[in-house]
Computed example of a mutant assay.
Amino acid sequence: MDPRSQVLLRQAELFHGELLLAGLPADDLLGQLPAAHGWSWHQGEQQRLAARFPQRSHFGTEPPERRFDAAVLFLPKSRELADYLLQSLAARLPGLPLYLVGEKRGGIERAARQLSLYGTPRKLDSARHSQLWQVAIDKVPKRPDLLALAQRFSLDLAEGPLTVVSLPGVFSHGRLDAGSELLLSHLDGLTPGRLLDFGCGAGVIGATLKRRYAAAEVFLLDVDAFALQSSQLTLEANGLQAEVLAGDGIDAAPGSLDGILSNPPFHQGVRTDYQASEHLIAQARHHLRAGGELRLVANAFLRYPALIERHLGPCATLAEGGGFRVYSAQRRS
């Protein structure tokens, strides 16, 4: 069981009545707290929770519209996202308790100070390298407008300016990261058939593909609800149409693709984790047609070429700069 869940269960007597667990891990916590309901924005965790606890977990960027007697927020990595989530929960809990749990190395002590906006916070427990804090909501905020928190910026592309819309918690919130910038400059020469932006984030790559290859069928895939909504907003801001898909990894991608483009994710919470990237490389051939291309950008120190050649075919380095490389390989027939 997740260490944060273990800390909660050390104080299980506090959690009676209808309880909302926001950002909960996909462990047995809902089984241990039978009156609790989950709210997840991670599609993979939501799928695992829904399989074990049907109708007891909600997926999306907004809390479920139902009454709760208390809520627990599992601290996310992003401070901007934590701000939004705390305000969303506090607005629904006048006079009721809000709990915050997180790992010490994830910044729980700093984040706990944010609770003072809504009352007087107090630390309840510290164990398993995690802490549990509580505040009774006596300063009730307004419900936050998520769209008002979006950051917008413009990219000057060959086809004209592209407006990018990103929500709190989305990778590289409010700016273009160096890896995506390098990949954006090397999107020529693709077969304009069925193209996938894997780990789409705010939709920069997917929107650019649709702008450049107007006749192509473009898909944008991500595991995170805030990323999915950001991608949809980016497409709408530029008058583009593409299919935005929720899924946990490349296994959720459609088949018979002519190209998979990606600046693949490498974080899970506060930890660095290359599993999704390596699984993408290992499984891309099952989603590409014969001759279809995987084109991705990655940190130059990662030994991806050998892995790519093992699963797809000869790997070419299309570009290098800023500590990143763009790799390309076509599926063998």
Score class of each variant (00 low, 15 high):
residue 1 M to A: 12
residue 3 P to H: 03
residue 8 L to M: 03
residue 9 L to E: 03
residue 10 R to C: 03
residue 11 Q to N: 06
residue 13 E to S: 13
residue 26 A to N: 07
residue 27 D to S: 06
residue 34 P to Y: 07
residue 38 G to W: 02
residue 43 Q to G: 00
residue 44 G to D: 02
residue 53 F to M: 08
residue 53 F to D: 11
residue 53 F to T: 10
residue 56 R to T: 14
residue 56 R to Y: 10
residue 58 H to P: 12
residue 61 T to C: 15
residue 68 F to W: 11
residue 76 P to I: 05
residue 80 E to K: 15
residue 82 A to L: 15
residue 88 S to N: 02
residue 94 P to I: 13
residue 94 P to G: 09
residue 96 L to F: 04
residue 102 G to H: 05
residue 111 A to K: 00
residue 116 S to T: 05
residue 119 G to Q: 02
residue 122 R to K: 08
residue 125 D to H: 01
residue 137 I to C: 04
residue 137 I to E: 04
residue 139 K to H: 13
residue 143 R to C: 06
residue 149 L to S: 13
residue 150 A to C: 12
residue 151 Q to G: 04
residue 164 V to P: 01
residue 174 G to E: 10
residue 175 R to C: 07
residue 184 L to W: 08
residue 186 H to Y: 08
residue 188 D to Y: 02
residue 190 L to I: 07
residue 193 G to S: 09
residue 204 V to Y: 12
residue 214 A to L: 10
residue 224 D to M: 05
residue 224 D to A: 06
residue 227 A to V: 07
residue 228 L to G: 07
residue 229 Q to M: 12
residue 235 L to R: 00
residue 239 G to A: 01
residue 240 L to I: 01
residue 241 Q to P: 00
residue 249 G to R: 02
residue 255 G to C: 07
residue 255 G to E: 14
residue 264 P to M: 05
residue 274 Y to K: 00
residue 275 Q to V: 12
residue 283 Q to W: 04
residue 284 A to H: 10
residue 285 R to C: 09
residue 294 L to V: 12
residue 295 R to I: 14
residue 295 R to Q: 14
residue 297 V to Y: 09
residue 303 R to C: 04
residue 308 I to G: 06
residue 310 R to T: 14
residue 310 R to E: 15
residue 316 A to H: 14
residue 317 T to R: 14
residue 318 L to V: 14
residue 325 R to L: 07
residue 326 V to D: 10
residue 327 Y to H: 13
residue 328 S to H: 06
